[in-house]
């Protein structure tokens, strides 16, 4: 085995180790802030895997979008809902955890079996390597043009929807017509709309 091959193998093993341990930490750790930072580590390791697969553009997009945007958004959400609350114990929680772990392990075994017994038609066509970014650009503006434009519309809709959902102010007068509007079903400042009657 040549030195480049062994280097690639070692990189893959280290990155896979980081991904598995990090994601286990994300779902198992008690402190949610640790989970968020571990999630950033997992995203970085996945970007490293993309680099191993000759996809530098997607690796850069992964770092920019996931680590730069999604992870920061999650940290902001943690900061905004940061109230220390002791969760009420629920009967049968432990049993539920073990049952779902069994189901997930079954799913894992099933997928491992599918991966290992399927005769993949390897090797495929030769990889184009560093020309991948140019090829992605060609795809995006020729045969994937419609999904590309739809993605921009989707992002606009998500942005407007997030602003509408998360804003706090109430407008009692319609901006366009000047009539009174009733937004009490959408949100009421200060008073919780859905009072939890089971605990109080």
């Amino acid at each position: 085995m040549s030195i480049s091959n062994s280097t690639e193998l070692i990189c893959f093993l280290v990155l896979a180790f980081v991904v598995i341990l990090g994601s286990l930490g994300v779902v198992l750790l008690g402190n949610i802030v640790y989970s968020a930072f571990l999630l950033g580590g997992v995203f970085m390791a996945v970007a490293g895997l993309y680099l191993l697969l000759n996809a530098s553009f997607v690796a850069a997009a992964q770092v920019l979008v996931y680590v730069g945007a999604v992870n920061v958004l999650i940290l902001f959400a943690i900061m905004l809902v940061n109230k220390r609350e002791d969760l009420k114990p629920i009967p049968g929680l432990q049993l539920r955890r073990f049952l779902s772990a069994g189901i997930c392990l079954g799913l894992l075994v099933l997928m491992f079996r599918v991966v290992l017994i399927t005769p993949w038609s390897l090797p495929g066509p030769a990889a184009i390597g560093e020309g991948a970014t140019v090829r992605i650009g060609e795809h995006l503006f020729t045969d994937y043009l419609l999904p590309f434009e739809l993605a921009s519309v989707l992002l606009l809709m998500a942005m407007i929807g997030a602003i509408v959902l998360a804003r706090r102010d109430i407008q009692t007068v319609d901006v366009g017509t000047g009539n009174e509007v009733n937004q009490s079903l959408i949100e009421k400042a200060g008073t919780p709309l859905l009072v939890d009657k089971t605990t109080t």
Binding site: W120, L122, G124, P125, A126, I128, A132, I136, H139
Partner: peptide, 8 residues
Amino acid sequence: SFLDGDLI
């Protein structure tokens, strides 16, 4: 990368 290296 493995099965569609040409048209990615």
